[in-house]
Amino acid sequence: MWNNLDRDGKFLLGTVLAFLSAILYGISQVIAKKGVTEYGVPPVVFLFVALFFATVLMFISGWPGIKSIRYFPRKQVLLLAGAGLTSGLSVTLLVSALDRAPVVVVTPIVALNPIVSLTLIYFFLRRLERVTKRVVLGTGIALSGAIFVIIGSTDL
């Protein structure tokens, strides 16, 4: 669908979609907080219900394209399944964290996950993407922001 776009166009659209995704993730933090704390749903149960219906919805909306998954390279499927497992575990931890601390403390910490991914990309994916000094500096500043949030959280 995006093949007609040039490099800058892809970067721009990718950036806009990333912001949209960030907004949706921001909203989801509040939804999780509301569901888990106000209605007493255990975080893991809350997540399972959410994931179950999301999976069903994605299979229905993606059909019949879903059938083509069997033709995907096995390595890619395993990597994506691994990403799903890691992500599932992380979301469980995130919702558990939201059950124990305010949203304004938890989300800035979790938002620093690019530090981990950029480190891994720097060491293992140099042929795909370049981690520049500016990216490292920007990530460092974001990390210092998280430290402020953690210190500030002790006053809450």
Partner: peptide
């Protein structure tokens, strides 16, 4: 976990 997931 999210960082590793992004990488994968």
């Amino acid at each position: 976990g999210f960082g590793c997931s992004t990488f994968l």
